[in-house]
Amino acid sequence: MSKLGLLAILPFIGMFLGPILHNEPTPFILGLPFELAWIVGWILITSAVMLVIYWFDPVRNETGDTP
């Protein structure tokens, strides 16, 4: 695993931080209660993080996978 693989810890921290620090339904974001919006936001970030990890993964470049 490359050092970039350590980025994978981010989603774990992010996902939990919202409910731990701010366990309230408000403020509503785009109509969603805060907790739900927070988790949805982190799903999007997670996908982006995994794309970055994949992009720079030496294994991918060795085996010639195309993204």
Binding site: G5, A8, P11, F12, M15, L36, I39, W42, T46, Y54
Partner: peptide, 23 residues
């Protein structure tokens, strides 16, 4: 109510793990 959100969170984190484990 809110406890249901766990269902949204866990799958996402499971895929993060899967990237490293499943191959």
């Amino acid at each position: 109510g809110a406890p249901a959100y766990y269902i949204l969170a866990y799958g996402t984190l499971a895929y993060v793990l899967s990237y490293f484990i499943l191959p």
